[in-house]
Amino acid sequence: MSPPILTVEQLRTYIHRGEQTLRAVDGVSLSLHAGETLGIVGESGCGKSLTCLSIMGLIEEPVRIEPGSSIRLHDRELSELSLRELETIRGNEISMIFQEPMTSLNPVWTVGDQIAEPVRIHRRADAGEARARAIEMLELVGFPNPEERVDSYPHELSGGMQQRAMIAMALACEPAVLIADEPTTALDVTIQAEIIDLLADLQRRLGMAMIFVSHDLGVVSQIADRVAVMYAGQVVEEGDVGDMFRRPRHPYTEGLLRCLPRLDRKVARLPVIPGDVPSPRDWPGGCRFHPRCAYAWERCLSAAPALTGEEHLSRCWLEEEPERRVPSRAGEPGADS
C-alpha cells in the first residue's frame, strides 16, 4: 500500500476553560490514503468535528492542540506550520465542507464570488479566470444553468444547491483531501442521497481522498471504504466498512448498528443506546464507554483499554477476554430501558 496522504497521530485537542481542561479529542490516530474515503462515526459530542477542525488548523483559543500531537499531510507536519503557511494549504491542498450550508455561505456575496475566491487566492487567477472556474465548478456539482447561478446569492438557492455550492468552493482548487463534516445532516433525505452520490462521484473523478463524518453509520456505510468509530474523544473501533458491519468488535459499534433502521426488520421504534454521551468535563474512569456498556465488568471500571488489532482495531477489554461478550445486565444490550 502506498504511504498515506494524511496521517493523524495521537491528536489531542483540549479545551482550556480556566482551571478546567476538557479533553475533547484525546489521542486520535487516523490515516488516509489516496483515493480512499474514511468515514468517522459517533454520536454527537464525541469529538468528530474537533478532530476535523484540528486537521484544518481551524481551532482557536481556548481550544488547543496539545504538544505530542501530529498531523501530517504528505510529509509536512501541519501542526508546526505558521498561520501564513497553513493558509496556503487550506482550500488548496485540503478543504472542508460543513453541516449547515445555509449558514456556512456568506449571505452578502454571490456564490460565484465565494467559489472564485480560493482560485484567486491560491491560483492567483484574475477575476475573469476565477469566474470561469466558478462556473465550471458549478457545472461540475450539477447546477442546471451555472452562467446564471454564478451571480446568485446564497439565499436564492435551496439547501441542496447551497451544499453543492459549498462543495464547488471546496473543490475549486482540486485539493488532495476533502473533509466533509456531516455534509448531509441538515438536508432532506432525498437530497442527502443526491449529495452523497455527488461526493462519491466527484471523489472518483477527481481522485481525491475524503474524510466523511456523520453521526449516522448508515450514511457512512454508503460512501466510506473504512470507518473509524469515535466515542468520548477517542477512536474506539476502526476497520473496513464491510468487516465492521458484519462483525462489529466494540460494544459501542454494536449499539450503533442495532440502532440502524433495517429493511428486513420492521420495528415500531428504533432502539437507542441507553444513557447519554458523557461530557468531556468528566470522562468516565476506566473504559469511557463502561457506564453504557451491557458487558462491562470490574476491569472496565478500573483500567482503560488500548486500541488493538491489525486491520480491524477495537478499544475494548473484550479483545483480551472475548468470553465475556455476554450481557451482564438484565435485558438485551442496547435495549431501550
Binding site: N106, P118, M166, A170
Partner: peptide
Amino acid sequence: RQDYIRTARAKGVPG
C-alpha cells in the same frame, strides 16, 4: 463567530 467566517478561513483566506 458565524459559520461563514469559518468557511472563509477553511478556504485559506488570509486573516
